[in-house]
Design a binder for these strands. Structure first.
Length: 596
RNA sequence: GCCACCGUGGCUCAGUUCGGUAGAGCAAACGAUUCGUAAUCGUUAGGUCAUGGGUUCGAAUCCCAUCGGUGGCUCCA
């Protein structure tokens, strides 16, 4: 049940509009910078871009001038005309366009697409001409610029981008823009972008005092504030309970280990550039751990194992440190120190398929508890160029992963050759508020470490055998997971995770004592409660509670005081009104139970 | 790491074009108000304008460097 590539989009009118708008943009850029070297300009999910080598950096003013020029060009009703030519002719035509020459050579020499990836068959070489602009392009395009509404296009940003995505090659200037079929769609898209920014976990994290990053502490290192700390604690608590109930053993391991360990594991060889520099202790070097596996393996290796012991599942909320290049850090989603809900499943070969099934279902069970039902699943397979282990083991493992995905009824994409050198894997990725994908869960085979650490067990035959090892993280990193979770709910977490579940709002001072009394009862029932006994007006207190996304507001005035009740208001704006304290508690506990 | 942009009280932002040694709102503290479903009023306090250097009689403003952030690119076992 592999997921379809998005053919529908590529065949759509919208796709042609965007691709054609990219050409018009290139024309406008060439009008402004006649010596510009043009690279590639495809349509992408939300719009299009075009890469240029320009004599100077683009300014925001350039962008609006280019956009103005584009609108002018669009009004010209220029036809997009295709012409198929030979490689020779194409080279002559693009003699002063080095990037195009490279593209032509790629097409000619057996077929590389514009990103440098091999094509199945050698393509024809075609030009598309519209107005004064001619581009090497396979199309398709709209018939004429009149099909593009000048009011439905917008240039969005400038960014650096390496030619052919290779950091050793020149950096070009990429202009991102978007285009829609009509101005309303554009407006809606821009509005959605604005709305998405409001859900950004960095903004919500600050507003709700969940976490912070301090320059003093260091970039990519997270400080969890009381509110975020509580949510994290509840998350961990739930997950640990589930792990214990599902056959896992909880272990703990230190944050550093001797160089020797990392040599055996191979990390110093293949992961070195992501590790923090070592510290010297007495005569030995120690490294902060970038992964937990070696420690778990040491626990396994600390005694002799029988084939009857399996499966062994060692789980740890292990904090790891990885050096990430400064430019890639991003709030909670990409950090330098994070805690994985890590586990290593060690089993016999014959147990492996069932083990995969179980862990995948367990993973889905956990994610769904947090309201996450939509993710992209990927199966990453072997790259024969760089892989350890026997091919037959790989194929068996890949089949097991595939079968598990299908039994779980999950749509997935295959990332051909995308596996790490030590084993195939399943990844689950979630999207953030701005549509960027972030990997959370991962289930991966490891054909490398059991070998390196000489892990063994004694089989039925009395002989030593090598066990299989699966490395898995379900939330992935708790930091990243919390980031995605914050954006998923826009900060309005389900009641069970909300730091303050109930806000009591006394209308006047004479209601304060009763409010505290009610609060005491609610706390006794296990609810997290605050009384807003400041001297704001009720409206202001409600507003504050709304902004904090508190699920339940209990208004307490003369009527409630007299009747011994509370008047409930929900963060949705719904107003169930007065009820007894017991009725409210019942309702709240039910909501918590049902993950509302 | 690379390209571009940005950094002003706890937060959001004005002031930077054209140099003349900071201003608002929210939050806070205090006082008044005691109010029925999204902002009551007043007073006060709070900033070496990211850091370091330079130009200048004078720098938040111009220049250089560093640190940090944002959007991309690369990377992401």
């Amino acid at each position: 049940m592999a997921k379809q590539t998005n053919q529908a989009y590529e065949n759509s009118n919208l796709f042609r509009i965007r691709h054609s708008t990219a050409h018009v943009m290139a024309e406008a850029v060439l009008d402004r910078f006649p010596d510009a070297k043009i690279a590639i300009g495809p349509a992408i999910d939300d719009g299009f871009y075009y890469d240029f080598d320009l004599p100077r950096a683009l300014t925001p003013e350039d962008l609006s001038e280019i956009e103005k020029r584009m609108k002018h060009i669009l009004k010209g009703n220029h036809k997009f005309e295709k012409e198929v030519i030979s490689a020779e002719e194409a080279k002559k035509f693009f003699a002063d366009q080095p990037f195009k020459l490279e593209l032509i050579e790629g097409l000619e020499s057996g077929g590389l697409d514009e990103h440098g990836n091999p094509l199945e068959e050698k393509p024809e070489i075609s030009l598309y001409k519209s107005d004064t602009f001619v581009d090497l392009c396979r199309g398709p395009h709209v018939e004429s610029t009149k099909e593009i509404n000048p009011k439905a296009i917008k240039l969005l940003s400038v960014a650096g981008a390496y030619w052919r995505g290779d950091e050793k090659r020149p950096m070009l200037q990429r202009i991102y823009g978007t285009a829609f079929e009509n101005p309303e769609d554009l407006k809606e898209y821009l509005w959605k972008l604005e709305e998405a920014k409001k859900r950004d976990h960095r903004k919500v994290g600050k507003d709700m005092e969940l976490f912070s990053v301090s320059q003093e502490v260091g970039p990519g290192l997270i400080l969890w504030h009381p509110n975020g700390g509580l949510i994290r604690h509840l998350t961990e608590e739930y997950c640990k309970k589930e792990h214990l109930a599902n056959g896992y053993d909880i272990v703990y391991s230190p944050h550093i280990g001797r160089a020797n360990l990392w040599e055996t594991s191979g990390h110093l060889g293949f992961y070195n550039e992501n590790m923090f520099s070592p510290m010297k202790i007495e005569e030995d070097e120690y490294y902060a751990k970038p992964m937990n596996c070696p420690f778990h393996i040491m626990i396994y290796n600390s005694k002799l194992h029988s084939y009857r012991d399996f499966p062994i599942r060692l789980a740890e909320w292990g904090t790891v440190y990885r050096y990430e290049r400064s430019g890639v850090l991003h709030g909670l989603l990409r950090v330098r120190g994070f805690t994985q809900d890590d586990a290593h499943l060690i089993c016999r070969e014959d147990q492996m398929p069932e083990e995969i099934d179980e862990v995948l279902n367990f993973c889905l069970h956990i994610l769904r508890h947090f309201g996450m039902n939509e993710f992209h699943a990927y199966l990453s397979t072997r790259d024969p160029e760089k892989s350890v282990g026997e091919e037959k083991d790989w194929l068996a493992a890949q089949d097991a992963l595939k079968a598990a995905l299908e039994r779980a009824n999950l749509a997935y994409d295959i990332d051909e050759g995308g596996a790490a050198f030590y084993g195939p894997k399943i990844d689950l990725k979630m999207i953030d508020a701005l549509g960027r994908e972030w990997q959370l869960s991962t289930i991966q085979f490891d054909f490398n470490l059991p070998e390196r650490f000489d892990m063994t067990y004694i089989g039925e035959d009395g002989q030593p055998h090598r066990p299989m090892m699966i490395h898995r993280a379900l939330l992935g990193s708790i930091e990243r997971f919390m980031g995605v979770l914050i954006e998923h709910y826009g900060g309005a977490f389900p009641v069970w995770l909300m730091p303050v579940q109930v806000k009591l709002i006394p209308i006047a001072d004479r209601h304060v004592d009763y409010s505290h009394e009610v609060a005491k009862q609610l706390k006794k029932a296990g609810l997290r409660v605050e009384v807003d006994d400041g001297n704001d007006r009720m409206n202001a207190k409600i507003r504050k509670a709304q902004l904090q996304k508190v699920p339940y507001m209990l208004i307490i005035g003369d009527q409630e005081l007299e009747a011994g009740e509370v008047a409930l208001r929900l963060r949705s704006g719904e107003n169930p009104g007065p009820m007894s304290v017991e009725t409210f508690v019942e309702r709240a506990l039910k909501d918590i139970e049902e993950l509302v």
